[in-house]
Nucleic acid binder design. Structure first.
Lengths: 137, 137
DNA sequence: CTGGATCCTCTATGATACTG
DNA sequence: CAGTATCATAGAGGATCCAG
């Protein structure tokens, strides 16, 4: 039976009963999500889902990203197998980043969250404003 | 026309052209995702998607969460309208947290990412191991 | 052009003690 | 029971300079 469909409550209880001691550090979800859910990786992956880009092109597309963070985001995406990196030994060198099939499928899953955000961010802003107003009173 | 379907590249270019200066701070996606994508909120929302819980029950279900962080996660979820908080004036007091329709629909969108992670985390681990091995060589 | 190396700051998270 | 207040720490992210 597919453990995925058991309630999270039951899974957490089973972990405790089994004496699992590692916290949730190698939880499958965290393995994937915690490395992806940072400030820039989702944005970079979305751009690469449209077409391949070179390093400098990505920088120009996202002006407020620092050089250090775009490098790190690309490395993280590459490390997890979401993008490939190809060096063309021109002079000066050029490097192309291209999304992989794994990355494309991750992006499509992430996309449902993006769509939800675009559809519902007004409701969230409204709830936030109402909550903050209630607090001030 | 629905701007959602224009490429991100075009949207970023339009922002620059319009002289938008706020970085991406009020990007609809960040408004939603950056407050939700922290260490504990997704886990708490998932538990509440199964049934309502009281404060202490949630603590016991997630043993390695600190008191401070569960409070903050619940406040953040409440603030954005994803969960409701009901105080029962018993003695000692008890407080019930319950997911809202907005929270339920967010959870369903997030769920596609969870499912992807469960289906593909082995591939990600493998890619990561291969990458790290290549680095060491 | 594509980064690597350093230094610095700020925020998220955690530990602990206290309260209605 | 359900929190709040305070202090401490690790890591993310940013600025800057340097190099193949």
């Amino acid at each position: 039976m597919d453990q995925r469909f058991s309630p999270l409550k039951a899974r957490l209880a089973a972990r405790r009963e089994a004496g699992v001691t590692d916290g949730l550090d190698n939880c499958p979800i965290r393995t994937v999500v915690s490395s992806f859910a940072n400030k820039w990786s989702p944005l970079v992956l979305q751009l690469l889902s449209e077409q391949p880009y070179r390093f400098g092109e990505l920088r120009r597309l996202v002006p407020d990203i620092s050089q250090r963070m775009i490098t790190q985001s690309l490395r993280d995406l590459q490390r997890d197998g979401y993008v490939s990196r190809t060096v063309f030994p021109t002079k000066p060198p050029s490097v192309e980043y291209r999304i992989t099939p794994l990355g494309q499928s991750l992006y499509e899953a992430y996309r449902s969250l993006v769509d939800w955000a675009e559809d519902n961010h007004e409701k969230v802003r409204a709830a936030r404003a109402a909550f903050d107003a209630g607090e001030g009173a």
